[in-house]
Design a protein around this nucleic acid. Structure first.
Length: 262
DNA sequence: GGCCGTTTCGCGGAACCTAA
DNA sequence: TTAGGTTCCGCGAAACGGCC
């Protein structure tokens, strides 16, 4: 299950840290690809041609980024990304607080990789420095009703609890500077090795239909765009949407988790 | 290592929205 | 009104992790 990074070569990076990189063949030729693997059409692209249908609440940035990836015959769902990232961050926090280095899931850390380890240490230190706060916020009862202890029947849950990873839940979740700071450090862990094959295994969706380890030059751009969007764009979108959502859903502020409103 | 409770994954479809 | 598309939600299954 673990990625084996041992076959990756270490080479100096422009920053202080060193990261292993995979040596790829010349991207300027396409002789390794079949017609099928060259299909540049993202799964949802056909639908983009029409303007009919419900107006998307997503930003155009979010739409174009998600639509450029492949998950089976479709593109990854917005909620899939949200679930994975938020669940992952909370889980990573619990790992950090327990002094463990994760070896599985989206934020797995290869102890042999100094770069990944450094990013993990930054994340873990930030978490431990604010341990009381993160101990509370990482509890699964503070997730939406679909998850963890909050999902169990018959147990009391927070009155303002959301039923899914919807805009309101996400806006509440990120309504705290500490959480955002920690989230960005968490993304650094995930994206510490900016190689498509590594990220495909982490996210469980792909940037192209290439069946071997070669990728298109565009693949690196896609992953960079996703990283940038997750770091900045998603927070901006949530901030812009949260006001309207909170109003339309008549959420009473006093019902929300006080920890998330600080 | 096996068991078992907890947590996470992610599918499928209902509900909703809006252009035609 | 219909059809096409998005978002929300519930829940079964799989994975994880603690305990013995």
């Amino acid at each position: 299950m673990d990625n084996n990074y041992s076959d990756l070569e270490l080479e100096p990076c422009s920053s202080e840290q060193s990261f292993p990189t995979t040596v790829y063949e010349d991207y300027t030729t396409t002789h390794n690809y079949t017609l099928d693997t060259l299909d540049p059409q993202p799964p949802g692209m056909a639908r983009l041609k029409k303007n009919r249908g419900r107006k998307s609440k997503n930003s155009q940035t979010e739409i174009s980024i998600l639509y450029s990836f492949f998950r089976g015959q479709k593109c990854p769902k917005k909620e899939y990304i949200r679930c994975k990232i938020i669940r992952g961050q909370k889980r990573a926090i619990r790992h950090a607080l327990n002094g463990k280095i994760p070896t599985t899931t989206i934020h797995k850390v290869n102890k042999e990789n100094e770069g990944e380890l450094n990013y993990w240490n930054d994340f873990a230190n930030h978490t431990i420095d604010n341990d009381e706060f993160f101990l509370e916020m990482s509890k699964t009862v503070n997730g939406p009703k679909t998850d963890g202890a909050a999902r169990r029947k018959g147990e009391p849950v927070s009155p303002g609890i959301q039923k899914s990873f919807n805009d309101v839940f996400c806006a509440q979740y990120f309504n705290n500077d500490l959480v955002i700071e920690n989230y960005k450090l968490y993304l650094d862990v995930i994206f510490s090795l900016m190689e498509p094959e590594n990220l495909i295994k982490r996210f469980d969706f792909s940037c192209c239909k290439s069946e071997d380890r070669n990728h298109f030059p565009d693949c690196h751009r896609k992953w960079n765009d996703l990283k940038d969007y997750l770091k900045e764009g998603i927070l901006k979108d949530l901030t812009e949407n949260s006001t309207n959502d909170l109003e339309t859903e008549s959420i009473e502020i006093q019902d929300l988790d006080p920890l998330l409103l600080e």
